[in-house]
Simulated assay, not measured.
Amino acid sequence: MIEAEYKARLAKPDAVRAKLAERADPDNVSYRDVYFDTADHSLVRTDREFRLRTISGTSGTRHLLTFKDSAVDAVAS
């Protein structure tokens, strides 16, 4: 599995929020991330992450434990 993340700078963020609100109920949430590493920082050195994310919003609070491995370039065929 290869993860891809896309980011875009919005010229009209209010217009985008309005369009999204037409399609779903908005929920204001806050994220709190705590990152963990080994004593010798081998995760950071090898571009990996191990984190505990706490997400709090109007629907409650939940916790996610995630591990992200280093990025991989797909081999073109």
Score class of each variant (00 low, 15 high):
residue 13 P to C: 13
residue 21 A to D: 10
residue 14 D to T: 08
residue 74 A to D: 05
residue 14 D to P: 03
residue 71 A to G: 03
residue 41 H to C: 04
residue 28 N to W: 02
residue 53 R to E: 09
residue 30 S to M: 11
residue 57 G to I: 15
residue 71 A to N: 02
residue 27 D to Y: 10
residue 37 D to Q: 06
residue 67 F to C: 12
residue 68 K to R: 07
residue 67 F to P: 00
residue 42 S to E: 13
residue 4 A to Y: 08
residue 29 V to F: 14
residue 45 R to E: 15
residue 37 D to I: 01
residue 64 L to H: 09
residue 34 V to I: 12
residue 27 D to N: 12
residue 32 R to F: 05
residue 23 R to Y: 00
residue 9 R to L: 14
residue 6 Y to E: 07
residue 33 D to L: 02
residue 37 D to M: 01
residue 5 E to N: 02
residue 72 V to Q: 05
residue 42 S to A: 11
residue 25 D to E: 14
residue 59 S to P: 02
residue 5 E to M: 03
residue 18 A to W: 00
residue 15 A to S: 13
residue 10 L to H: 06
residue 13 P to D: 09
residue 67 F to E: 02
residue 18 A to V: 04
residue 38 T to W: 03
residue 33 D to K: 02
residue 3 E to K: 02
residue 63 H to Y: 12
residue 50 F to S: 03
residue 75 V to Y: 08
residue 11 A to P: 00
residue 1 M to Y: 08
residue 45 R to N: 13
residue 58 T to Q: 10
residue 28 N to I: 00
residue 1 M to L: 10
residue 49 E to V: 06
residue 34 V to H: 03
residue 24 A to T: 07
residue 69 D to S: 12
residue 65 L to F: 12
residue 68 K to E: 14
residue 55 I to Y: 07
residue 8 A to D: 07
residue 1 M to Q: 05
residue 69 D to E: 11
residue 44 V to M: 04
residue 60 G to I: 13
residue 62 R to Y: 15
residue 50 F to N: 01
residue 53 R to W: 06
residue 65 L to S: 09
residue 36 F to S: 08
residue 28 N to K: 08
residue 7 K to G: 09
residue 10 L to Q: 10
residue 33 D to F: 02
residue 24 A to I: 13
residue 16 V to S: 14
residue 5 E to K: 09
residue 29 V to Y: 13
residue 52 L to M: 13
residue 55 I to M: 08
residue 52 L to T: 10
residue 29 V to D: 11
residue 77 S to T: 00
residue 21 A to K: 14
residue 29 V to L: 14
residue 55 I to P: 00
residue 9 R to W: 02
residue 40 D to T: 14
residue 56 S to K: 13
residue 68 K to V: 08
residue 7 K to E: 11
residue 19 K to V: 12
residue 30 S to V: 03
residue 21 A to I: 07
residue 69 D to A: 11
residue 57 G to A: 14
residue 21 A to W: 08
residue 31 Y to A: 04
residue 73 D to F: 05
residue 50 F to Q: 00
residue 6 Y to V: 15
residue 28 N to G: 04
residue 47 D to N: 02
residue 32 R to T: 14
residue 30 S to D: 12
residue 37 D to N: 11
residue 9 R to Q: 15
residue 11 A to I: 12
residue 45 R to A: 13
residue 74 A to N: 02
residue 11 A to T: 13
residue 48 R to F: 07
residue 71 A to Q: 03
residue 33 D to V: 01
residue 19 K to W: 03
residue 71 A to Y: 04
residue 46 T to H: 05
residue 62 R to L: 13
residue 47 D to Q: 01
residue 36 F to P: 03
residue 26 P to W: 10
residue 36 F to T: 04
residue 76 A to I: 03
residue 3 E to C: 05
residue 62 R to C: 10
residue 9 R to S: 11
residue 32 R to N: 14
residue 71 A to P: 01
residue 51 R to E: 03
residue 40 D to W: 09
residue 65 L to K: 01
residue 62 R to G: 03
residue 29 V to N: 11
residue 56 S to N: 11
residue 54 T to D: 10
residue 40 D to N: 15
residue 47 D to I: 00
residue 20 L to I: 08
residue 40 D to S: 13
residue 41 H to Q: 10
residue 14 D to C: 06
